[in-house]
Design a protein around this nucleic acid. Sequence first.
DNA 1: TTCCTTGCAAAACTTTTGCATTAAA
DNA 2: TTTAATGCAAAAGTTTTGCAAGGAA
Lengths: 140, 140
Amino acid sequence: MAAKLESDKGSMAARLRDHGITPTAQRVRVGQILFACDQHLSADDLLRQLRAEGARVSKATVYNTLNLFAAKGLLRELNFDATRSSFDSNTSPHFHFHVENTGELIDVSPGDIEFARLPALPPGTESLGVEVVIRLRRVE
Amino acid sequence: MAAKLESDKGSMAARLRDHGITPTAQRVRVGQILFACDQHLSADDLLRQLRAEGARVSKATVYNTLNLFAAKGLLRELNFDATRSSFDSNTSPHFHFHVENTGELIDVSPGDIEFARLPALPPGTESLGVEVVIRLRRVE
DNA sequence: TTCCTTGCAAAACTTTTGCATTAAA
DNA sequence: TTTAATGCAAAAGTTTTGCAAGGAA
């Protein structure tokens, strides 16, 4: 209902503000799409979805917004595909299966991988996280 | 010395032939650069290095050759940088540190990482390998 | 008002392609 | 000679940029 939509819009605006992002109409709409569920979207995926919903958004704004969200920690950029970047709307720690012959990307929950040993970091560096990708091929 | 260079050229040609690759002059030269040591090179890095050595090679051939070598298992393609692919001349199992604020890529030897638990694969898939990237930031 | 954001088109890049020429077998 | 590889320039795809117009505070 209308009240629900208003509330969603307002809470997305608040969420953006909490991350130091001025909540414009375009950014709120992008946020509502991205954070509806955990997903991996390219700039073009997102633009197509916005246009399908009748949103008035330019390509430049889609790129600006994705980069801004990623810089502010709302998204994580993924470079599995050599030709285009995707953005993961789930920024909590987790891992991925990457099916190379189909392009699929499947989440692995964080509890499903554990390390028995990790290397010491090179001097003068700090860790930003550990990424694990299990490369797969779909068969039969 | 000349004999040494001849021998290197010959053994690179043999190595390419072993992988089902017709050893042309350009491919041998590319192989000699790539496999001189373990390294991570982009197409442009490689083209620049070839040109600096005075090699007569086109951009198209550099791309053709990198893709061919990767398809034949002589290289592994890496997509850490969103804007360009790199190719790892070390195809044996190992992992990487990726220093995000400098772009550096540092090898982690395979013995330095051990898993205590790994997830079951999705049905209908087989594993092509596990990739681990420890994302770093250089500080101070 | 003042500063930031958007939209549009053009520019910048990386990578691929088409086709005539050249080299490998 | 027959087939495959190369070089060049143009094309294709993604992402960024410059600048005028519009929106937020």
